[in-house]
């Protein structure tokens, strides 16, 4: 399997390289290389935003998932409508409406905080459905068994539901976290210092578009690949049959 993956990576890498070799110029690469500081700063901005958003979106996802399972109907309805609205509209629209509309009215002018909230809210809605699905994937007989041995509700979540739900949802969670990192690129439209915004600047300064976007792609890959590997490692560790 490992050899297969390495071979496939080499093959695809070669095709991309061949295409880029024909479409880019030595001069273009050199002029882009001069702006490395801008890439570095943007990459750090994306790293900051994504790592904070991973945590806050998970919290929002948990709250929404439990909200949608709540016995109190108004809370359940509110969470359901919120999740469907966020999942059913483009992130771009949400950025514009929230930043220039809601946050402006609320007096929140910090771009970094606004982008963190917008991104976390967006990813949180998706995560909540993954989490809810995970919780509901744990069978009724498991819950009954937990009740029969006398576990409290909190203990049941911690020792019975969480480990099994995590196992079922790891691939989906990893995919959602990778999406979150890439979705942060859209925040360039409100001028947050992040990788895409800065790569676009380099492209316009240097007139070398393709040469600017290759480092951009690599910058995101460096962030998303570890998440995939980490989730695969967790999956292996948590492996059990039912």
């Amino acid at each position: 399997m490992k050899a297969g993956v390495a071979g496939a990576a080499l093959l695809i890498g070669f095709i991309v390289y061949a295409a880029l070799w024909r479409l880019t110029t030595q001069a273009g690469w050199e002029s882009v290389a001069g702006y490395w500081r801008l890439f570095w700063g943007g990459w750090l901005g994306t790293l900051w935003l994504a790592s904070k958003a991973l945590v806050t979106s998970t919290l929002i996802g948990l709250l929404l998932a439990f909200g949608r399972r709540a016995a109190w109907v108004p809370l359940r309805a509110l969470c359901t409508v919120h999740v469907e609205l966020v999942r059913g509209t483009p992130l771009l629209t949400q950025i514009l409406i929230l930043y220039y509309g809601v946050f402006h009215l609320a007096g929140l002018e910090s771009r970094t905080l606004a982008s963190l909230l917008i991104l976390s809210n967006f990813a949180g809605a998706y995560l909540s459905e993954i989490i809810r699905g995970g919780i509901e994937s744990v069978g009724a007989s498991q819950l009954e068994s937990a009740r029969a041995i006398g576990l409290t509700t909190a203990q049941t979540y911690r020792f019975v539901i969480y480990p099994q739900a995590l196992r079922h949802t790891l691939p989906a969670l990893a995919g959602q976290f990778a999406s979150l990192i890439k979705d942060s690129s859209l925040l360039s439209i409100i001028g947050v210092e992040e990788l895409t915004q800065n790569a676009q600047q380099v492209a316009s300064f240097s007139f070398s578009t393709l040469e600017s976007y290759v480092p951009l792609a690599l910058g995101y890959l460096v962030l998303t690949l570890p998440i995939s590997l980490w989730s695969r490692w967790l999956e292996k560790r948590a492996h059990f049959q039912t």
């Binding site: 006398g150 576990l151 059990f240 039912t242």
Partner: peptide
């Protein structure tokens, strides 16, 4: 919960916790 915790129930479908080994299934309660 107090009443349930003092009884031992054995189900038709075993209802063991699949993510825990036999020993941990006993240790949890």
């Amino acid at each position: 919960r107090e009443h349930r915790s003092r009884l031992g129930v054995v189900f038709q479908a075993f209802n063991l916790f699949p993510h825990l080994n036999a020993l941990d299934n006993l240790l949890l309660p």
